[in-house]
Design a protein around this nucleic acid. Structure first.
Length: 474
DNA sequence: TGAAATGTTGGGGCG
DNA sequence: ACGCCCCAACATTTC
């Protein structure tokens, strides 16, 4: 094969995989030597630099990517510092004339990458960027009026009619060219991605990070859950969801690889594909409305009377609200870095509506604690719940954590698992201990306020207060 | 991808 | 047999 370039850099970012990696494939077809690089520059993503759980995930995923690259004869070069300076340094060390990467569609990354492309081009370095994260480029999906979609259903219908355009996933290379031994790489440990305080044992037990882990988890989902996803996905006591979130965020698997696998194994997955559609929708929305990471898309909410209540926020964060389903979710999040989606909606509704605390407070907490924290999904998810986003749940849709628990945790196993101090309460009261007669509480060995918090708000009264607040802005 | 209030219907107990 | 009331079950409206 004749190569246009002697040496290319492949700049890995949110595409920590070897299969279906267009930047890598392109580099291999264009250059004789291909040098895989990861640059740790968290400040460049400010104010949404990766949180603690995300960094934990990144650490293990980089370790895994590095092993996979070594297994094919190559070597992953780690660097730390400003991306542009590191790339320039690597270019001078390797005489590379081509830099390839897969796009990240977040506001701060777009600004950074656009600048890098301009500067490198001025230095006669060819840059080649690719789409590895989305089904469609955000600028290529538009309404008949040539505007971005703001409503999910027509957006997804439109996308589905065009799914056939999807190319098949690219194969992983079976050999990577060796990297000159003199080229230095930082130690993974020197990036300090792991938490200083050891809180990650629960996460270690829950997750198999990396590209192989992504495919193993996907296969498990296809075998066990995908076909009854429509009903089981709402059950936080079961493992009926795909858990693809963190893998998708770091690009350890691509949406089209998932769709292709479901298709090849003839798994009916209409309602799961719809969730991939929501991911796509969120990413397109963030691309078109980059200010929504910290401002409501619906401008009426700029003057919504949010409540500043540090004590209530802290109770929510720690899973000490006295509302069992809310506390169960918040504790699952803290312990595993993940929370079931149904419960995410419940705890988010509780924070923004019953406590009337600004959705950004919730978004920031999720950002720091979720291993699948993703700026587009997090922003759109929180705005959706708060009622200020695109195609949002109306503000007056307020989840009742008691009813949600009875409906979706019908055997109360989820609550009993994460809120063990009330596990001995009978089913009738376990979703609402504040209503339990004293005799039932003492039989279960519980004194509210001592063994488990009294509810920090009255669900009915706070609901009414939220509706009154909403009237002020509508 | 809600919940609560309000309205409607129809079966059954009862005088 | 009949009207009346109660109330569950379901539907509609409102927030």
């Amino acid at each position: 094969m004749s190569h246009t370039h002697q040496t290319a850099l492949v700049w890995f970012r949110r595409d920590l995989r070897l299969a279906d990696n267009p930047a890598l494939t392109h580099a291999l077809s264009e250059a004789r030597n291909v040098i895989p690089v990861f640059i740790h520059a968290p400040d460049e993503e400010a104010p949404w630099s990766p949180g603690a759980a995300s960094l934990w995930w990144l650490h293990h995923s980089l370790a895994s990517l590095s092993r996979d690259i070594t297994g094919l004869g190559g070597r992953l070069i780690l660097r730390q510092g400003a991306s542009l300076a590191c790339l320039q340094q690597l270019i001078s060390e390797t005489s590379a004339t081509l830099v390839c990467w897969n796009r990240v569609y977040e506001p701060s990354c777009i600004v950074r990458d656009t600048n890098i492309k301009r500067v490198l081009k001025d230095q006669a370095i060819e840059c080649s960027s690719h789409n590895a994260a989305l089904l469609f480029e955000p600028w290529q999906v538009r309404t008949q009026q040539d505007k971005p979609f703001r409503v999910f259903t027509p957006f997804w219908k439109h996308c589905q009619t065009r799914l056939a355009e999807q190319p098949l996933p690219l194969a992983a290379p079976n050999l990577l060219p060796g990297v000159n031994k003199s080229l230095t790489s930082a130690d993974l440990s020197s990036l300090h991605l792991l938490p200083r305080i050891k809180w990650d044992s629960g996460m270690q037990a829950h997750w198999q990070t990396g590209e192989a882990g992504a495919h193993a988890r996907l296969q498990q989902f296809i075998n066990d859950s995908a076909s009854h996803y429509a009903t089981e996905r709402d059950r936080p006591d079961k493992t009926g969801t795909s858990c693809m979130g963190p893998y998708l965020h770091f690009g350890e698997i691509s949406p089209r690889q998932i769709i292709t696998a479901l298709h090849e194994q003839q798994t009916p997955a209409e309602s799961y594909l719809r969730e991939l559609g929501w991911r796509e929708f969120s990413h397109h929305l963030l691309y078109h409305f980059p200010h929504t990471t910290n401002a409501p898309l619906d401008i009426r909410f700029e003057k919504f009377p949010w409540d500043k209540n540090a004590a209530a926020l802290q109770a929510w964060q720690r899973g000490q609200t006295g509302i069992p389903l809310v506390d169960a979710g918040m504790r699952e999040l803290w312990h595993t870095g993940w929370m079931h989606n149904r419960v995410r909606m419940v705890v988010a509704s509780f924070l923004t509506k019953n406590l009337r605390i600004h959705w950004l407070e919730g978004a920031r907490w999720f950002w720091d604690t979720l291993v699948d924290a993703d700026l587009a999904n997090n922003t759109q998810g929180w705005q959706w719940t708060a009622g200020c986003g695109a195609d949002a749940a109306p503000f007056f849709r307020i989840f009742n954590p008691t009813l949600q628990a009875e409906r979706f945790d019908p055997e109360f196993n989820y609550i009993r698992r994460w809120v063990p101090e009330i596990a001995r309460l009978p089913n009738k009261w376990i979703t609402k201990p504040w209503e339990a007669p004293d005799i039932e509480l003492s039989k279960a060995g519980i004194k509210l306020g001592r063994d488990y918090p009294s509810a920090i708000v009255d669900l009915g009264a706070s609901r009414e207060a939220a509706l009154d607040a909403y009237k002020e802005i509508k």
